[in-house]
Design a protein around this nucleic acid. Sequence first.
DNA 1: AAGTCTTTGACCATTACTGACCTTCTGCAC
DNA 2: GTGCAGAAGGTCAGTAATGGTCAAAGACTT
Lengths: 157, 157
Amino acid sequence: MASLSDYIESYLKLLLSSVPDEWVEIRRRDLAERFRCAPSQISYVLTTRFTIERGYVVESRRGGAGYIRIFRLGAAPGSDALEVVREAVGDAVDRKAADDLIVRLVDMGALSPQDAAFVRAAVHADDGDRRPELDGIVRARVLKATLLFVLTQPTTE
Amino acid sequence: MASLSDYIESYLKLLLSSVPDEWVEIRRRDLAERFRCAPSQISYVLTTRFTIERGYVVESRRGGAGYIRIFRLGAAPGSDALEVVREAVGDAVDRKAADDLIVRLVDMGALSPQDAAFVRAAVHADDGDRRPELDGIVRARVLKATLLFVLTQPTTE
DNA sequence: AAGTCTTTGACCATTACTGACCTTCTGCAC
DNA sequence: GTGCAGAAGGTCAGTAATGGTCAAAGACTT
C-alpha cells in the first residue's frame, strides 16, 4: 500500500520531529541513495507533500555544497482553513472575492478580526497603481501569501 | 551551510559585527592563507555575498600596500527595515534582486530564516505563467506587499 | 477503460572553486 | 626622475558538483 514516496515523506517528518529546530537540511543526492531511487523522486515528494498548504516551506541551493531545507510552519495540519484558501484563490481574484474569502475565514474562526484587517490592507494596498490589468493577479498572490502566513503562525494563546 | 564560501562569509560578518565601525579591512592573501584556499576564492565570496544589493560596499587597492575594505550599509540593528524595502523595490525586480533583499533583511535581523523562506516561496510562486515581461512587475508588487505585511505583523516573540 | 498517482532519466541551471594570466601600486637603485 | 622588481588584488574561463524540470512510462484506483 505504502509507496516509496510515502516512506520518504514519513522519514522526513520523523527527521523534523527529532530536531529541536523547526527545520531540517538534507542533500537530495544522499537521500536518493538512501532510498535507492532517482534524485528527482525526492523532488517529487517535496513538491507534492511539503507544500505551503500543508504547512511546509522548502528552499534549496544548487551547485557545490547544495542543499535542501524543509521548514515546518506552525500550522495545525488538520486545519481546513488552508484548504479553503487553496480552493478559493486561483490565478486572479477580484476585490469582492478577496473580501468574501476574508469574511468567510473570520466566520470560521480561523482568522481574528485584527488579522483580517491586516490582510485586507495588504491585499488592497496598491490597487490600480500602474498596471490595472495586473491587479487581479497581484491580489491573488498577495492574498494567498498573507493568508497562509497568518494561518500558519504559531498560535500565541 | 557547509561550503568554504559560507565559512568565509560568516567570518567576515562576524568581523564586521565585532568592530565599532561599519567597515573592516582585510588582506586577500592573508585571508586566503587562513582558510587554506586560493586568493581568488576570497574575491569570489566578496562578489557573490557582499554586493550592494545585500547592503555592502567593497573597495580595494592593489600593489604593495594593497587592501580590501568592506563597508556595511545601514544593516545595523535598529535601522529601518521598512525603509530598506521601500528603497530596494521599484516598479519591477528580478529574481536575484528579490532574493538579495530577503537575504539583507535576514542579515539585519528583521526577518527570521523561516519567514524569509516563506516570503521567497510566495514571491517565486509561479513565475513565468503569464507574459514574461510582466513577471518583474508582479514580483515587485507581491514582494513589497508580502514583506511589508510580514515585517509589520505583530510578532509573537 | 479511464484517470490519477508514482517513478524515472535525459537534459538544464546554478553554485563553488581554482589557476593562469593581467593590472596596479610601492619601494629602491641609480 | 626613471626604471625595474616585487607584491599586492582583479578577471575570467574551465571543471566539478550539486539541485530543478519535464515528458513519458509504469503502477495503482475506480
